[in-house]
Simulated scan of single mutants.
Amino acid sequence: MNRPTLSVVIPSHNGRDLLPACLESLRSHRPDGIDLEVIVVDDASRDGSAEWVNAHFPEVRLIRLERNGGFCVAANAGIAAARGAFIQLLNNDAEVCDGWAEAGLAPFRDPGVGSVAPLVLVRSRPDRVDSAGDCYAVFGWPSKRGHGQAAERWKHELAGEVFGASASSAFYRAEALRKVGPFDPSYGSYYEDVDLAFRLRWAGYRCVFEPNCRVLHDVSATYDHGSPALHRRMAKNAEALFWSNLPAGWLALALVPHLGFLAVQLLWKLSKGRAWPFLLGKGDAIAELPRFLKLRAHRRALARSAEARPRFRLGVAPVEAAVDHLAQPIRAGA
């Protein structure tokens, strides 16, 4: 069996109502001249999703998980099964647009590119941007480039390097994922893609934003953003990113700004009545701090094996490159 060029991996839990539009878009915009496989990972759904996929999209490879493991576990199962030289993670609440695959794969002609960020538009309001790649501010703030801005401006943006790609629709070089590892299951969901972006950069890879690759995303259709458990997990995951991944020089400079940022966040959470999950999440992070620090050895190992010196683009959207010159190329300092 010939190896496909692109594997599209769609993790799905109880997504029966979301999958039709997602899979139909892939069928309608199937690229010419690109061998494509589509993989749906059914994360122990109870709504008949798996049976529906088998009945209506027999060309789709279906992987059924017996136990619900969350986004990272489902995504990793799909990544492990994928045969493509390149892998796209696609949310079940997303739709691809015409020419998405050709545009998304084009930057990989440069062997130093490990991931590609599409222009992700809000499905209910395609004149607005969901993300144009991800940013990471040195004081510990992950964010989406262009979020909420007019799509017309970003459609004419030149392709260029960004910090990372949102897992709602990110493309990855399969070889790069094998080198750095897939998503860290301890994140569960939220910021797992930022952690992966950091690891790809530690390994010397770059991420490119490609505005001609467009995806529609039904923002946050999969998760309940009012859930205290979700806010607690996000608070912990934010600390995991900060302590596990920042280069040593950045970490020393960022400590005081990070503490100030946490204070501002706490005040905002207090005003919204969400302080308790936030504090619990930070408590969870303190308990796991020794593990976070141990992960830094893995980052140093990636840097030592990298063909290109790791370089970090840290900043706040939309000027994430403003402090790029401070991130000196490094090999092993973490």
Rank of each mutant, 00 (worst) to 15 (best):
V96Q: 12
S28T: 15
P11G: 08
G48V: 06
P310T: 05
F71G: 03
E239P: 05
E66D: 15
V162W: 03
P211L: 07
S28G: 07
L18D: 07
R299H: 14
E51A: 14
S7V: 04
E192G: 02
D193L: 03
Y223M: 06
H217T: 08
L216A: 08
A165H: 07
A174G: 10
Y136G: 08
A285W: 00
L253Q: 13
S12W: 01
L253D: 13
P142Y: 11
W52A: 08
F139R: 07
Y205L: 09
E192Y: 05
P107M: 06
G283T: 00
A174H: 12
E59L: 02
T5F: 02
L251E: 10
S168Q: 14
D43S: 10
N91K: 01
H217R: 11
K282F: 10
A167C: 15
P20Y: 10
I39F: 04
P277W: 12
D35E: 15
A303V: 06
S271M: 07
L105K: 14
E152T: 13
S131F: 09
F139S: 08
H225C: 09
K155P: 01
L177V: 09
R178F: 09
V38Q: 05
E239Y: 06
H225V: 11
D98E: 13
Y172K: 04
A74T: 08
E95A: 07
W276G: 09
S220Y: 15
A77Y: 02
F312I: 04
D324W: 02
S271L: 10
L26P: 01
G33E: 10
N2G: 10
R309W: 04
L196Y: 02
L18P: 06
A151L: 01
N54A: 08
Y191Q: 00
L295M: 05
R214I: 00
S12P: 02
S7I: 03
G112Y: 01
G188T: 01
W141D: 02
A301D: 15
L19D: 03
G226D: 15
T5P: 01
K294N: 06
E192Q: 11
Y223C: 06
G333V: 10
A81C: 14
I63N: 11
D110Y: 04
A165R: 05
A151M: 01
P58H: 09
L90W: 09
D42P: 03
E210N: 09
G204H: 03
L251R: 15
